[in-house]
Nucleic acid binder design. Structure first.
Lengths: 212, 212
DNA sequence: TCAATAGTGTCTTTAAGACAATATATA
DNA sequence: TATATATTGTCTTAAAGACACTATTGA
């Protein structure tokens, strides 16, 4: 199995978090978080994805979703193989608690990865971009509470396109995917109006019947 | 691996095509087309899905796409297992060339299936319904050439909802996903205006940036 | 010509986008 | 009060839906 982990850099936007291959083939190369399914102890492939993120990235309770399964004779130089690939999203702030030594690369300039991990990462990015417009997916790159300008910014980062501000607010409110947190963001010191804080109304991914 | 095969019944709409388990567990039960990946000879899981459809359903050159991978201790009574699931679409007319003895059930009243195949079939149906609105997916349930009323009907069957006729034509034409076949459908004898025939402009699945 | 479905044109309704105006913090 | 962003309101534009009208075939 392989897990592609993404985060949102404050300046650089969407980025991938990578480990390093510790043995051949591809020893020393940046790589997705990979490992073998343990049919005995893992309750499912999704459980295994969580376990791998805990073991290799030091992160628990991260949003994960199955991407797809890759297979064939060419993806591993040792021969025919299968990998169930997952993608995962973590807010940038939580990387402080991650295992040290991880590499973080803006998705626009990723290094060459081990195995067929470039292809898996590309597929994960395509899925992310596709699913973002009709779901709460990008919100899992933010902390539990966030402002509307932050939410809009993460949608724009994942979609790679600017959104209309008042239309975005209108739609988000009409879809009732958020609930108000009785607090404002004063943290970012500065001379400006503080923004209302919100959280996702549902803990899980929600899909819409329209587009943000 | 397991493949969920769907077709479009002329009267009953979307239907699933099933085989029968020929041994325990679940001997005699209707089931998806299942079998084992052959890492040596199969070039990929997608190749294996095609092989299984050929072997078990007698159908070659059918549209297939990976659904997702199911895993866990409970899906097979013999113990922990993994299955890479695919879905496939075949025009009703091609079932004539299929292996005899297959069962065809409207998706609204499917019998209980072997293993966790009910769950896989449900996931395939959900994917079909979700992806239909922004892709040419439903067209793979029709023969190579079809009329616009037929295309609209198959979208309606898969989406489970009625579509606006003139808007449907407008959008399909604006998206340029079809090319005209220099023929009309006179086949269906009767007192009515014959319809223009069309075919998909691209042989593969095309995704839109809007909805039909 | 009639019946029955195919296909077009146009008006109405609804959603999205642009953008000005107002609100609210702190220095 | 001035500054900088947050938030709201409203006008414009574009897309979707409703539906009447025209087209084309064989009986």
């Amino acid at each position: 199995m392989d897990v592609a982990l993404f985060t949102l850099l404050p300046e650089e936007g969407l980025a991938i978090v990578l480990g390093t291959r510790d043995r051949d083939p591809f020893a020393g190369r940046p790589a997705l978080f990979g490992g073998f399914l343990r049919p005995g102890s893992d309750g499912s492939a999704t459980d295994a994805a969580h376990r791998l993120l805990a073991e290799k990235a030091g992160l628990a309770d991260v949003f994960v979703e199955q991407l797809m399964t890759f297979s064939g004779p060419d993806r591993d130089p040792r021969g025919w193989s299968v990998s169930i690939a997952y993608y995962a999203l973590v807010p940038f702030g939580r990387l402080a608690e991650a295992r040290p030594g991880l590499a973080v690369w803006p998705v626009g300039r990723m290094p060459p990865l081990a195995f067929d991990h470039d292809r898996i990462a590309a597929a994960a990015l395509a899925r992310l971009g596709g699913k973002a417009s009709y779901s709460t997916l990008p919100a899992f790159l933010l902390p539990k509470t966030f402002t509307l300008p932050e939410l809009k910014a993460v949608y724009e980062a994942v979609l790679g396109t600017a959104l209309n501000d008042s239309a975005f607010r209108r739609k988000v409110m009409e879809m009732r995917i958020l609930e108000e947190v009785p607090e404002k963001r004063g943290a970012t010191a500065g001379v400006r109006r503080p923004a209302q804080l919100w959280r996702l109304a549902a803990d899980r991914l929600v899909e819409f019947d329209r587009t943000v």
